[in-house]
């Protein structure tokens, strides 16, 4: 079965959100991390959150679903100011759930290749690529040796 034949309002193990929920969540995430003004950094809602959620535990998926259920389905059509205000209210009334939503949004965002390359970093995990680091300037250590009190003799 290809994606177009799926009922978009049915939740399955490989489709953790209905299409309406996904649209709402995407809009919600774009409030939490909007696209950057210069267009380099995507908004969190532009990323493939559904794929990300497929890799998470059922508890995480349930919390995200629950968090988004606090918002009406017309959330995406509200003005930017209204959306921001609604998220602020949610963060105050449901701080724990908001923290989970924020944690997962950031987790999804900051491991995404598009985001990493937007930050000027290499895509993918650190290993086995590794990083290069300058050896550093040891020339002033002569001065340190001269100035040092030395260790306490016993």
């Amino acid at each position: 079965m290809n994606d177009s034949t799926k009922d978009s309002n049915v939740i399955t193990s490989d489709q953790p959100l209905t299409s309406e929920q996904a649209e709402l969540l995407s809009s919600l995430l774009n409030v939490i991390i909007p696209p950057s003004d210069d267009g380099v950094m995507p908004g969190a809602g532009e990323l493939d959150l559904v794929s990300y959620l497929r890799e998470q535990t059922p508890e995480v998926v349930a919390t995200i679903r629950q968090a988004s259920s606090f918002f009406e389905f017309d959330f995406p059509s509200k003005s930017a100011t209204e959306r921001h205000q609604l998220v602020v209210e949610f963060s105050v009334t449901e701080p724990e759930m908001f923290n989970t939503l924020l944690f997962q949004s950031y987790a999804c965002y900051y491991q995404n290749d598009r985001v990493l390359t937007g930050l000027g970093l290499a895509a993918g995990p650190p290993f086995p690529r590794g990083n290069s680091v300058d050896s550093g300037d040891l020339t002033t250590l002569d001065k340190v040796v001269q100035n040092a009190k030395g260790y306490r003799r016993v």
Binding site: V31, I32, I33, P34, H84, V87, L102, F103, Y106, A107, Y109, Y110, Q111, V115, L116, L119, L121
Partner: peptide, 19 residues
């Protein structure tokens, strides 16, 4: 790394969510 910078920044109030 980037994720921990963001999440620690949120908790310390130094990196807000939003605009």
């Amino acid at each position: 790394g980037p994720f921990n910078t963001a999440i620690q920044g949120y908790h310390s109030g130094r990196i807000p969510w939003g605009a």
